[in-house]
Computed example of a mutant assay.
Amino acid sequence: MEQLDTITVECADAVGAKATRILIQDNLADLSLNRAIGRLKVFMDPVESVFIFAATLRLGTPAIKLKDFARVEMGSLGRDEVRIELEREVYTVKLLNKLWERYGKENVEQPDKKVIVVKTDPVKEVDALRELVIEERQQEILDRLIDAIALRIIPEGFRVRKHELSTSHVLFVASEDTLKPEWIKKGKDMMDTLRREENA
């Protein structure tokens, strides 16, 4: 499995552990999440009806902001507009969608494929536009990860759930029944162990 350091499935049923491991590997590969996960540990007990999923994350790539690929300046003298000159066009479609959503299509013009003009108060908006997030790669990865865990990996019927999600880790404790405090503690202990192993 590309980039994933370790994956451990702990279960009294060896066949169930192997099947769960394959299920996790396949789903992470299908959603291109292997590189986003450092270490992963699962504990499952079919008798107690508990499933715990803990993983450290390596999301890396920060958000792409408008200032990363364009010059943003006040428009023509005496006009209420901001002029955006694109240095790279790869994000143009996403940028236009964000501008239309924020300012309305009638206030966004593209006189040239590398120039976009936004009719707005330049004093108020020029700095805000420079910081405008166009692509949130970390959030997209987190969304795919939640989809993989919540909809594809956790056993069907395990509707009672508690989870923690950050840019450094993910922890899910799930069951068919009310979650026991010892299960939540076990999940936190698993997470602590993974962090120690990763930092060793």
Score class of each variant (00 low, 15 high):
Ala200Ile: 05
Cys11Met: 08
Ala29Asn: 11
Trp100His: 14
Arg144Lys: 15
Thr61Gln: 14
Asp26Leu: 13
Lys65Val: 01
Phe53Met: 08
Val170His: 10
Met1Thr: 10
Met191Arg: 10
Arg58Asp: 04
Lys119Glu: 02
Glu73Arg: 09
Gln138Pro: 04
Asp80Leu: 11
Lys180Ile: 02
Glu10Pro: 04
Ser168Lys: 15
Ile146Thr: 08
Leu4Tyr: 00
Ala12Asp: 14
Arg137Ala: 01
Ile116Phe: 04
Arg88Thr: 00
Asp30Leu: 11
Glu106Phe: 00
Asp189Pro: 01
Tyr103Ala: 02
Val50Gly: 11
Asp189Thr: 13
Arg21Gly: 10
Asp127Arg: 15
Phe158Gly: 13
Asp192Asn: 09
Thr20Ile: 04
Glu176Asp: 12
Glu197Leu: 12
Lys119Cys: 05
Ile149His: 04
Ala63Asp: 09
Val50Tyr: 14
Arg71Pro: 01
Asp30Ala: 15
Leu179Trp: 14
Cys11Asp: 13
Tyr103Asn: 05
Asp30Tyr: 10
Trp183Phe: 08
Glu101Phe: 14
Val118Met: 07
Thr61Glu: 15
Phe51Trp: 05
Val72Phe: 08
Asp112Glu: 07
Ile64Gly: 11
Glu81Trp: 14
His169Ala: 10
Arg83Trp: 06
Val118Asn: 07
Ile24Cys: 13
Gly187Phe: 00
Gly104Glu: 11
Gly157Tyr: 03
Ala70His: 07
Phe51Pro: 08
Pro111Gly: 03
Leu57Phe: 02
Asp26Lys: 15
Ala55Val: 00
Ala19Arg: 13
Asp192Ala: 14
Ile154Phe: 05
Lys119Trp: 06
Glu182Lys: 07
Asn27Phe: 02
Glu2Ser: 13
Val123Gly: 09
Thr92Glu: 10
Leu23Arg: 15
Pro155Glu: 10
Ala14Pro: 09
Glu81Pro: 11
Glu73Trp: 03
Ala17Pro: 05
His169Leu: 09
Ala63Asn: 13
Leu77Gln: 09
Val108Ile: 12
Arg79Ile: 02
Lys119Leu: 07
Leu165Ile: 10
Thr120Asp: 01
Ile116Ser: 01
Ile22Phe: 03
Glu81Ala: 15
Leu194Asn: 00
Leu99Trp: 13
Tyr91Ala: 01
Ser168Pro: 00
Arg79His: 05
Val118Ser: 09
Lys186Ser: 03
Arg71Cys: 04
Gly38Trp: 00
Ala14Phe: 06
Lys67Phe: 01
Gly16Leu: 15
Asp127Met: 14
Glu182Trp: 07
Ala17Thr: 06
Ile37Ala: 02
Val93Asn: 06
Val123Gln: 12
Leu31Tyr: 12
Glu87Arg: 14
Lys180Asn: 06
His169Gln: 12
Ile146Phe: 10
Leu165Arg: 09
Asn107Ser: 13
